[in-house]
Amino acid sequence: MPPADPPAETPAAPMYPRVLLKISGEALMGDQGFGLHPPTVRRIAEEVKQVHDLGVQICLVIGGGNIFRGLSGAAHGMERATADYMGMLATVMNALGMQGALEGLGIFTRVISAIPMDQVCEPYIRRRAIRHLEKGRVCVFAAGTGNPYFTTDTAATLRAMEMGCGAIFKGTQVDGIYDSDPKTNPDATRYASVSYDEVLQRNLRVMDASAIALARDNKLPIIVYSLRESGAFAKVLRGEGKFTIVHP
């Protein structure tokens, strides 16, 4: 008799049962210079679906820089608070776009806004949001914290802690954190892991300083990986592929 085929390797189990994925608004632009690129939004939604199919509970926070960035508006003479509120509204638009893509893939999704706008999304109520996650729904948190002067990075860290997430996953254009910009320096070195304090001291620009300090104080890991690699979200969640983890 011919030898039996070796048993197939069982994929590693996900490292965390509940996670928050933070992506920038610019990630939804694709190759265009502004707004939403539907094929790119759908591709990211498919990445989320792969992880959702593993039984992982998922929250999302999406920036608004593809539509309007508060700091940029303030730099052009607009009042900072007004510019930040405009940026928050941009995140709601992105969240609704992602909701449409996810529900097109059969995943029940709730957009939850820190600024009440009942006609298009739910107001943020922590216990209700946790119940959505327990029922297998994806929660997309929009409008930041609802306050000006706070970035979506800080909002993502805050929501991850409130929801009891095991980690924040930060999807970027590169496969981790480097000691310099790998797009301009071919000799840039990628960190496998780095501490919160090193990120702050070396100004590595993973997330803003407030978000890093908040994660550090609550020992919340931040995992940085590339959004460009197909299937990377699921791989990294199983501890595979290339990524950088920020931890104590």
Rank of each mutant, 00 (worst) to 15 (best):
M93S: 06
D153A: 03
K22C: 10
A188E: 03
T189M: 10
V174P: 09
L237V: 01
H52E: 01
V236A: 07
Q50I: 03
T189R: 15
I125K: 15
T82G: 11
I125G: 04
E229F: 02
Q57H: 06
Y178P: 02
A213E: 10
P116C: 15
C165G: 02
Y178I: 02
F68L: 08
I23N: 07
G104M: 15
V120N: 09
E229V: 13
L28M: 04
E229M: 11
I115V: 15
P38M: 11
G63L: 07
A95I: 04
R131I: 00
M163Q: 07
T172I: 01
A75M: 04
G63K: 13
L54N: 00
D153Q: 09
N147S: 00
F169C: 06
A209C: 04
C121L: 13
R228P: 01
V120T: 04
R238E: 01
I245T: 08
P39S: 08
V138L: 15
F34R: 14
A27R: 09
G64N: 06
L102S: 02
P14C: 07
T145P: 14
D118N: 08
P123K: 15
M88E: 01
A167H: 04
L237Q: 04
P123H: 13
E229T: 05
G25D: 01
D175Q: 02
V140N: 15
G70L: 11
T82R: 14
S113M: 11
I125Q: 11
Q173G: 05
G164M: 13
V41S: 04
K22Y: 03
S72Y: 00
P6H: 14
D53M: 07
R228W: 04
E134K: 06
A13K: 15
R216W: 06
R127S: 09
I44Q: 02
N203C: 03
Q50D: 13
L133Y: 12
S24G: 05
L28Q: 06
N185S: 06
I223C: 05
A75F: 02
P182E: 10
H37E: 00
V19M: 12
P123W: 07
I62M: 14
G166A: 05
M93R: 06
Y149H: 14
L237H: 10
G231Q: 08
V92G: 13
A8E: 14
G146Q: 11
A129T: 06
I245G: 01
I245E: 07
A101S: 05
D217Y: 01
A215K: 14
C139Y: 09
